[in-house]
Amino acid sequence: MAAEAVQAIGWWGVPLAIIAGTMRGGTPFLFVSLGECLTEKSGKINLGLEGTLLTGAMAAYGTSYLTGSPWLGVLAAGVAGALLGCIHGWLSQQLRVNDVAVGIAMIIFGSGVAFFFGKPFIQPKATQLPTIDLGGWSDTPAIQAALQISPLFLIGLAIAPLMAWFFKSTRWGLFIRAVGDSPEAARAMGVSIFKVRMLSVVAGSFLAGIGGAALSLYYPGLWTERISSGQGLMAVALVIFARWNPIACLWASLLFGGAQAIGPALQSIGIEDGYYLFNAAPYVLTLVIMILTCSPKRTLSGVPGALGTDT
């Protein structure tokens, strides 16, 4: 055991925990928020990503356990997410059907599916995704552990700028923005609003499913029914925090991921009081930022114009 090499790092543990937490805990946020960003850019909200996240986590863990291949698990998570996305994408575009309501029904349905089929996978131990160790230069185990980075995190890191570029510079990106900003204009361009939104929702749910895989196959690396603790819903707030900008989603995910580590890290060095309030910090922060930056006189930069309307 490496116990001899253990050194107490005292106060440094807090920033270290936060940095490590950002990468560990930020990975699922990153995928879910990028998925939600893509969805919202097309003008629909998907609150159901909480259910998608759970289903993805369950599918990834189950597949990895049954086949022994964690990467197959990641793929299964994406596909399972996309299937739920199909339901949401189709249903939320029916006349008079509200996407927020469908999202909440999908949370119930998605978590039901995940829990129902996930029962046999709670006990067994599935093969985890390999990690890339960047901490070899240091002999402090704390730093080594903090720098064990998941390839999923790196993939997410790559997707964020890619998605930004996709929105900005590709034809398809333009279609999505047009559909999200002014469906009328998009219709005039000859774009099928239904198809674009459907594809955006499905692709977004695919990403969110992979976020679930990050939970069950990387950190904390197990399947239980309480694995998500509301991250799917939080991602919706996160996207707004990030102003529908994929790069900002990356920073926001890191921030939210790090925030989860603050409470335990502070306690482990002796700051004890009010951890419930610490736990609420990300929500309060998002709310405060929304209040500070919103104004009735101008619309938010980046907000898809058709978001939250019935068109």
Binding site: L91, A105, M106, I108, F109, V113, F116, K119, E225
Partner: peptide, 17 residues
């Protein structure tokens, strides 16, 4: 299992919506 009622509720709501 206990999660069956979630599926039941989810299905009914999706169809009602």
């Amino acid at each position: 299992p206990d999660s069956t009622v979630l599926i039941f509720q989810g299905l009914v709501f999706l169809v009602v919506l």
